[in-house]
């Protein structure tokens, strides 16, 4: 029996390489482009954060300027209630008891409500 032998002149070359055109640009261009885009983006983010900080500072100072006026009004109201409470106690009990062993102003944990509806 004769053996199977390669064809005369050898086999034709096997195509194992891709034979497609490479699309787009070189990869390095994409890397550089992405880096540029992100640099720009982070720059804008930084600008935004800085402006945001300044806006926060503006808001904080607006409140700082208002705190004394609001606090003064609130304190006056608290003192009014406190004095009214003391006067009421004096009228009802005839004595002034000190609840706390301290001279500090302690905000009451309860609110006295009048008997009748107030406007």
């Amino acid at each position: 029996m004769p053996q199977d032998m390669p064809p005369v002149g050898g086999y034709s070359p096997v195509q194992y390489k891709r034979n497609l055109p490479a699309r787009g640009f070189r990869p390095s261009i994409y890397v550089v482009g992405t880096a540029l885009l992100m640099t720009f983006g982070f720059y804008k983010v930084g600008q935004g954060i800085r402006e945001h900080n300044e806006l926060a500072r503006e808001k904080m100072w607006a409140r700082i300027h208002l705190i004394p006026a609001l606090q003064a009004e609130e304190d006056r109201d608290q003192v009014r209630r406190y004095l009214a409470d003391k006067a009421r106690e004096k009228e009802l009990l005839g004595t002034e008891t000190k609840v706390y062993h301290s001279d500090r102003f302690v905000r009451p944990t309860f609110a006295v409500t009048p008997e009748k509806e107030t406007k």
Binding site: A87, T113, T118
Partner: peptide, 21 residues
Amino acid sequence: MASRQPRFNQQVLIDTTPLPN
């Protein structure tokens, strides 16, 4: 807490005693 105005059923019950003169 106590600085919150107490509100009851359709009534406003606030101590309105003014400050002493």
